[in-house]
Design a binder for these strands. Structure first.
Length: 116
DNA sequence: AATTTGACGCGGT
DNA sequence: CACCGCGCCAAAT
């Protein structure tokens, strides 16, 4: 818990289940910084330079919109990545967002929690 | 060391 | 419905 706010975001993002999505705010809140969703976005930005599998494309804003798609190196990339996981995107918005939404505080498993 | 910025969230106008 | 501003806090310049 030292420092890296980033690492925490990485950890959570890394554990987002396949075909599920979460929001910046949810992650921020889980990190104990409700309202600091920006930090999550900022951290995710560093994620692209981070080695390893961090499914940043599974993180969308609270409306389920792919707001960060322009940071994926390709505007359609994020969309395709999600659709390839079974997440349907329409007009930059995740369909059935409520259903696919993964709340870390609610669905994070023990082992994942420990890995955090 | 100070200022700007940012992939958000939410209420207000 | 569109636009505005504030809060939140760390990293980058």
């Amino acid at each position: 818990m030292t420092t890296n706010f980033f690492d925490r975001v990485y950890a959570i993002t890394r554990h987002i289940p396949y075909g599920r999505v979460t929001s910046y705010g949810a992650i921020a809140k889980y990190l104990g910084a409700p309202g600091s969703a920006r930090m999550v976005g900022w951290a995710l930005n560093a994620t692209k330079s981070h080695p390893g599998s961090i499914h940043a494309h599974r993180v969308v804003n609270r409306q389920g919109m792919l707001t960060g798609k322009n940071h994926f190196g390709g505007l359609e990339m994020m969309c395709e990545l999600l659709e390839s996981e079974g997440v349907k995107i329409k007009n930059d918005r995740v369909q059935d967002f409520e259903t696919l939404f993964w709340d870390p505080a609610r669905e994070l498993t023990i082992e994942e929690f420990l890995a955090l």
